[in-house]
Nucleic acid binder design. Structure first.
Lengths: 258, 258
DNA sequence: CGCTTAGTTATGTCTGACATATGGTTGAGG
DNA sequence: CCTCAACCATATGTCAGACATAACTAAGCG
């Protein structure tokens, strides 16, 4: 049953984040969530390793592995004598799938989170669609087409629809041929996952968005960069309107930072 | 700057990557560089932990911490029985400062790397400048202005010029008020660091770019979004022309992925 | 009063062992 | 001879206890 030489790369395997079940991943998630939710203030503290090992009922090496995970994501910084400190949010790796998930889960200030997510998508994805139109190959185009076909099949159920939807947008990012643009995949995934969570109780089937996706695919197919850009922009504008309608009203306020 | 013998040119508190000196960081850098340079093929192998601990003259816990660092950056994936495998490049966190540095250091296919870097900047930074013009605060504007002032001071020396230059572009990203846009800071830093490395032996002082930066700052100051976007685009086009002139000619070839 | 020095403390590192799951191998059964 | 189940080897996962090292604190000395 296994396809012999063809790698068929991901498919079964989801985007693998930290293994939540096992020790280090579980602890990293707990501490990471605490940091992004503001339990541990910017430039200070975090309990010591022995204290953490006691608190999480795990040995110190496991705690240290968890801390290394968080360190690699820019959340903490350990120095020899005085403990490990939570780093300020400018240092966080905001496009890391785990950091995004933790921020979303402990949804503090969710309106601004959703707004920024959409704003970033509006910057990246139209340009990505244009680049994909110019640079796509037979292989990458096939990925986009396959994702769109699966969207059409599951158009009746929002829960089923979201997976191929995410795959569609990711495939476009990959089709750009630019690794740095493709790095936004995690962001798209989180954004769409969040939207479906928010919007699922307000609306029915996602049928109206299918023709918009079809326009994007068609433009990419005929290597029409500006058409693809415009079509993607139309889709994102629709998504923005939906988000505005669904998010609590304060979402329309201009974000006001100190 | 990196692996040198700890001159600590600019003082302690900087963007802290992995602590290269100490065990886990040093090992992570070695293995990570090997992965991004293609020594360990996509979906396969990587020596076992005991073998690694022997090879790097370190204990197994330290090796495991290094592996956790790499795991958090999307480079590897460990499963219980059959070892830890190098993940395919789609999984790599391309905007991670360490991954960027490792890819740049073991510069394989550097022309495409530089080209993609510039292309990504052309997508992000004009939009970021426009957003900064609309959203900047007194605090964030001051950061941009301070960086520009330092650029003017050190205009005579390219080596000194690069630091405030990086700071200028980072400050604009921060001034957007959007965390996800700001996440590109590491990319900008790597890009400018790479360009100065490439261009330093071809050209003299970076004086011509100063008025272009001044135009960006002025547009942001007067909250002129489209002006800021256009000014940034002008700067990036100049940078692109310089890069084209400096990089070997094959950089103009269409990147051809299988 | 400032500088040096000693002590405290948390991270960093090491050793050695056991637990666990999984891939491969082997043997039983069809 | 082939199929499938049980077994075993192996690499990661986890644990415990110990020592090394550096940095912050404070006492001691000039």
């Amino acid at each position: 049953m296994s396809t012999l030489t063809t790698p068929t790369t991901w498919e079964a395997e989801k985007v693998r984040m930290v293994n939540k079940a096992s020790g280090a991943g579980r602890i990293a998630e707990q501490i990471g969530s605490a940091i992004v939710s503001g339990v541990y203030r910017p430039d200070q503290l975090v309990p010591g390793e022995i204290e953490l090992s006691r608190r999480f009922q795990a040995s110190r090496p496991v705690v240290r592995e968890a801390l290394k995970l968080l360190s690699a994501k820019g959340l903490i910084d350990s120095r020899k004598r005085a403990g490990t400190r939570a780093r300020s949010r400018e240092a966080w790796h905001m496009l890391d799938a785990d950091v995004l998930a933790w921020r979303l889960k402990t949804g503090k200030a969710e309106p601004k989170f959703v707004f920024d997510l959409l704003q970033a998508r509006t910057v990246i994805e139209p340009a990505a669609a244009a680049m994909a139109a110019l640079n796509h190959t037979a292989r990458t185009l096939k990925l986009i087409e396959a994702a769109f076909a699966d969207m059409e099949v599951s158009v009746h159920d929002r829960a089923l629809f979201v997976e191929p939807d995410i795959r569609f947008h990711r495939a476009i990012l990959i089709a750009t041929g630019n690794d740095f643009i493709a790095a936004f995949g995690a962001l798209i995934e989180t954004a769409l996952g969040a939207f479906v969570r928010i919007a699922s109780r307000h609306e029915g089937a996602p049928a109206p968005s299918v023709p918009l996706h079809r326009d994007i695919l068609a433009a990419i197919c005929r290597r029409d960069a500006e058409g693809a850009r415009a079509a993607m922009l139309v889709l994102l504008n629709r998504t923005s309107r939906n988000a505005e309608r669904n998010v609590v009203r304060q979402g329309s306020r201009k974000p006001k930072r100190h």
